[in-house]
């Protein structure tokens, strides 16, 4: 076999080329991303100035847990993030269905419209919202007319944060669900209908299980982006309604409590990663159970 070495070497060089192409990304992640994380980790266990104990310390973590408002801030962060996930699901799934339905004529335009919040600068968008939600705005007057109370509007409320985050993060949910809906064929819903399933049963028993992986990954992306977001929360939520992300920002850049901010950032990272791992595990398990069952029962 004279050709074999040539084939092998071309195969090797192809693999080498593809590895080489990954190298810049790997380098970027190792230095900028992982390096940055290590710096935060070091900061979070660094000895505060003036204290002479040498080496590392868990003082910043104790500081975080010891401070009274932190529990409320974390709770509020989780609550607002979950509400944002729910909002994105309620709004995003129908949009994703529309975009992926074969008969839709405007799907290109709708997709562009849904993605457009990502293309507007954060500051511009948020100042627009302040004008929209703030006192004296149409929304404020409308709310007063409907429910009475002071014409302060939605600005500096949790509702403003959730609405803002939902708008900002909706594209991620739509894209994620739309990509998983590729497994769904319109003929499946026709088949289910012809078998006597009501339109609601078709949605719950056929379509939802099929787009579930997309819903899961969309929810994870939206959740992690809302827990770590701080610009939206800071400008729409105002003082007393800040989220973990904003608290970290304040600690590090305003109050110069780098250690405490870093510790808070590490804790947030751990919580988010743990929640994501749990969610992915649940999602993966569903598939694994199915596959194992298939293999054992099928033969």
């Amino acid at each position: 076999m004279q050709v074999a070495p040539a084939i092998r070497s071309s195969r090797l060089s192809r693999r080498a080329t593809s590895l080489l192409l990954l190298a810049p990304t790997t380098l970027l992640y190792l230095t900028v991303y992982l390096g940055g994380l290590v710096m935060v980790l070091v900061m979070s266990i660094d000895v505060p100035p003036g204290v002479d104990s040498g080496g590392a310390t868990l003082a910043h973590y104790r500081d975080v847990f010891g401070s009274a408002p932190i529990g409320a801030i974390v709770l509020r962060t989780l609550r607002d993030s979950l509400a944002t996930v729910a909002g994105c699901l309620l709004l995003g799934v129908p949009v994703a269905r529309y975009i992926t339905a074969s008969a839709s004529r405007w799907k290109g335009i709708v997709l562009m419209a849904v993605l457009s919040p990502l293309m507007v600068s954060a500051i511009g968008r948020i100042f627009g919202w302040i004008a929209l939600f703030g006192p004296g705005s149409v929304i404020a007057d409308g709310l007063t007319a409907l429910f009475g109370g002071k014409p302060t509007g939605l600005l500096y409320t949790e509702a403003a944060i959730i609405i803002g985050l939902t708008n900002l993060l909706l594209p991620f949910m739509v894209l994620s669900v739309a990509s998983s809906r590729a497994h769904f064929e319109e003929d499946m819903s026709k088949a289910a209908l012809s078998l006597g399933a009501t339109p609601l049963s078709v949605l719950l028993q056929v379509e939802l299980p099929l787009i579930f992986p997309g819903i899961l990954s969309g929810a994870l992306i939206v959740f992690s982006l809302s827990t770590t977001n701080f610009v939206t929360a800071a400008l729409l939520g105002g003082s007393g309604r800040d989220l973990v992300g904003y608290e970290i920002y304040l600690d590090i850049l305003v109050y110069f409590q780098q250690g405490r901010g870093a510790a808070l950032a590490m804790l947030l990272l751990v919580v988010v990663v743990a929640l994501m791992a749990l969610a992915i595990q649940t999602g993966v398990q569903r598939h694994e159970v199915r596959d194992t069952a298939a293999r054992t029962r099928g033969t």
């Binding site: 003929d187 012809s194 399933a197 339109p199 049963s201 099929l210």
Partner: peptide, 30 residues
Amino acid sequence: HRRDIGITFQKYALFPHLTVFDNIGFGLRQ
């Protein structure tokens, strides 16, 4: 869903998340 007409499709359109048993039992379950 109230016509009681069985249909087979060109690409079969089986439910990929259900076993053969559950695919066949789908209509009976409804």
